[in-house]
Write a protein that binds this DNA or RNA. Structure first.
Length: 613
RNA sequence: GGCCCCGUAGCUCAACUGGAUAGAGCAGCUGACUUCUAAUCAGCAGGUUUCAGGUUCGAGUCCUGACGGGGUCACCA
């Protein structure tokens, strides 16, 4: 049994024996002792003071004495204002280190039967991936790693939003102005090429729209439809969508393209598939650069029709209802939401329709009890609605659905807007952080003897380590500020700071080789060593918490604290030239374990360790 | 306007889910490399946790209200 549970039980027992006060041992609150106080763990006594009508000191003494007698590994206790601090003996901590240092993959949980599906990235197929995608990709990847470590069977997935009006804009634009340009002919990466024509489309549309605004019919429209005090500019800005749908010539081309696609027109399908493949090649290169992959990619074009079957099913049992115009709706007012359309009057799918169908397909294929959607918080309402519908339909997996909602990324210059050209491309960013790592390493000169490939691999790991840690250290739910300069920082609370701790450890073992055999069970710990051992013991808890709270930032904080404590110890004590042989052997074993746990915990964030830097 | 989220040091973030004197990093100022890698360590300075009430032995954390920021309210995805 783990020692904290043991303490809880003994506290409860002590209260019962000495004061006839019956307390559930699970409710006994134990925290880590604050750094300024003596002790390792703290029992909070306040809840019992009133019940037993004793002073905090008397109560603390009784329980403390009981703990010291009944738990062999507790060496001492003290009481400060209602807090009972207990200390572990050195022998206990040394023994614990000895045992975890011998576990092959320390932190691994026993295999569970449950399967978890994690969906992330899920881009549109009409442009390159950008900084916003990087957050979902890193979060999704990290959650997958954390679940695996926690013993779950994990299935990583992505849904490619490969159909609809957006890709048709790129297609129309390419057909009109592209002159047959391809990634091969132009040397432009596929996703950027398709993105280029998407932007090109918007330029032409804007130009056409501006010319139209000068026409008589447009000014008549403004006079008759504009609200009081609305400026011409504001009015036409709001009207752009309607213009696209009702007046635009190239808008008409796009809509015809979409209809042809839906009719299965061969030429259109061929173009569609060609341009999508360009994008997939581009996206796959970006995923590979980031070191992530998926078990299966679902394509919206293949699943969107399936949603209609679900609609029919719900219509039959009156979960949904039909309006006079033929559109189909769901009423969620009983759970505090609104009425929501789920199938258009012309019988075609909306966004929700697809997600209903996709969820069913995926459950039928994978039977995952948990399904985590890593999607931005602007879609909070959408997912509330989706999950409620699944419950109403009586889906067995409905309660396992979870929206891991993450906040938007802001830049120091404001919000990212593709139209205003303030988007940060994922590829550019990755290249930049690696370049920054290269510069830093060149100055230090530690890796200059290595061959070029080995050096490049180190720069890649350091650069990506900086970027990934910078993003994952923030609680996912929070909106975050992305400062390009800070994202490539390599000092302080950063990925490279943690990698550096690992590199120092690797360096020791390059010089030494294997750890000599020696019994260190009676070793007396230095303060810095004690802190490290206590942190190491927490690792499994951190994994469990990160999994339960959907929060990789907990792992990031843990890694940082562990690295910080290691750097402190490295500074305070000598390792290879320790005072005694016992101290040396103990410290080596400690370093080895710290190195393993640092590597393992950064792996949960998708960060790799360099051997040198 | 309705609903949802957020507000902590100059800046970027923590705070074990209601516990002790709110902690880190960056930026600023000091100091430490002939030593296992200084991408490091030690120190100084920086706070009325947006504001006003309330609940509690105890509130950054829970409740009410105000102020400020963001999101969302499409037969777009």
């Amino acid at each position: 049994m783990d020692i904290l549970t043991k303490i809880q039980e003994e506290v409860a027992k002590s209260l019962l024996v000495h004061y006839e006060c019956d307390v559930d041992s699970d409710t006994v609150l134990i925290n880590q002792t604050k750094a300024d106080f003596e002790g390792d763990y703290t029992v909070v006594l306040f809840p019992y003071i009133k019940k037993v009508k004793r002073s905090p000191d008397e109560l603390g003494n009784t329980i403390g004495t009981h703990l010291k007698e009944s738990v062999a590994d507790i060496s001492d206790f003290n009481i400060v204002k209602g807090f009972l601090n207990v200390s572990f003996s050195d022998q206990y901590l040394v023994k614990q280190l000895d045992s975890i240092s011998q576990i092959e993959n320390y932190g691994d949980f026993p295999k569970r039967s449950e399967k978890v599906m994690v969906e992330f990235s899920s881009p549109n197929t009409n442009k390159p991936l950008h900084l916003g995608h990087i957050r979902t990709i890193l979060l999704g990847w990290s959650m997958s790693k954390i679940y695996e470590k926690a013993g779950y069977d994990v299935f990583k997935t992505c849904i490619a939003n490969d159909r609809g009006i957006a890709i048709c804009k790129s297609m129309t634009s390419w057909k009109n102005y592209g002159n047959g340009e391809t990634p091969e002919s132009s040397g432009i990466k596929g996703d950027f090429l398709v993105g280029k024509y998407y932007v090109e489309f918007d330029k032409h549309l804007t130009k056409e729209y501006q010319e139209w605004q000068a026409s008589e019919s447009a000014s008549n429209l403004f006079k008759s439809k504009a609200k009081d005090e609305q400026t011409e500019e504001a009015f036409f800005k709001a009207y752009k969508n309607t213009y696209f749908n009702e007046h635009s010539a190239i808008g008409k081309q796009v809509k015809e393209m979409l209809l042809k696609w839906e009719d299965g027109d061969e030429e259109t399908k061929a173009l569609w598939s060609q341009m999508n493949n360009w994008v997939y090649d581009g996206h796959n290169a970006t995923y590979a650069n980031l070191g992530v992959s998926f078990d299966k990619i679902y394509y919206e074009s293949e699943t969107y029709l399936k949603g209609k079957d679900v609609i029919l099913e719900g219509l039959k049992d009156n979960t949904f209802y039909k309006e006079k115009d033929g559109s189909i709706w769901v009423d969620l007012e009983d759970v505090g939401l609104d009425k929501k359309i789920i199938l258009r009057s012309d019988g075609t799918s909306v966004y929700l329709t697809q997600d209903l169908g996709t969820a069913d397909i995926r459950y039928a294929e994978q039977a995952a009890e948990k399904m985590v959607y890593v999607v931005g918080d602007e879609q909070d309402y959408h997912f509330k609605v989706l999950f409620e519908i699944m419950k109403k339909l009586g889906r067995s997996y409905a309660n396992g659905l979870y929206h891991l909602s993450y906040g938007m990324i802001d830049l120091p210059t404001g919000k990212m807007k593709s139209r205003e050209g303030t988007v940060v491309d994922a590829d550019d960013l990755v290249e930049e952080v690696i370049e920054e790592a290269r510069k830093g390493a060149k100055e230090r000169g530690e890796v200059s003897q290595l061959d070029k490939d080995a050096q490049d691999e180190i720069f890649r790991r350091i650069g990506l380590g900086a970027l990934k840690f910078y993003i994952l250290k923030v609680n996912p739910k929070k909106r975050m500020m992305f400062n390009p300069q800070e994202s490539v920082d390599m000092q302080g609370q950063t990925g490279p700071y943690i990698q550096n701790a690992f590199v120092r450890i690797s360096s020791i073992f390059r010089k030494l080789g294997d750890i000599p055999e020696l019994d260190f069970s009676a070793y007396a710990l230095e303060p810095a060593e004690k802190e490290l051992v206590k942190s190491l013991l927490q690792y499994p808890q951190v994994i469990e918490q990160a999994a339960n709270n959907y929060d990789p930032s907990l792992v990031a904080s843990f890694s940082y604290v562990l690295a910080k404590q290691f750097h402190k110890m490295y500074h305070d004590v000598r390792i290879l030239s320790a005072e005694t042989e016992v101290a040396k052997v103990f410290r080596l074993r400690l370093c080895k374990t710290v190195g393993n746990v640092l590597e393992s915990s950064l792996n949960l964030l998708g960060i790799e360790m360099p051997e040198r830097m």
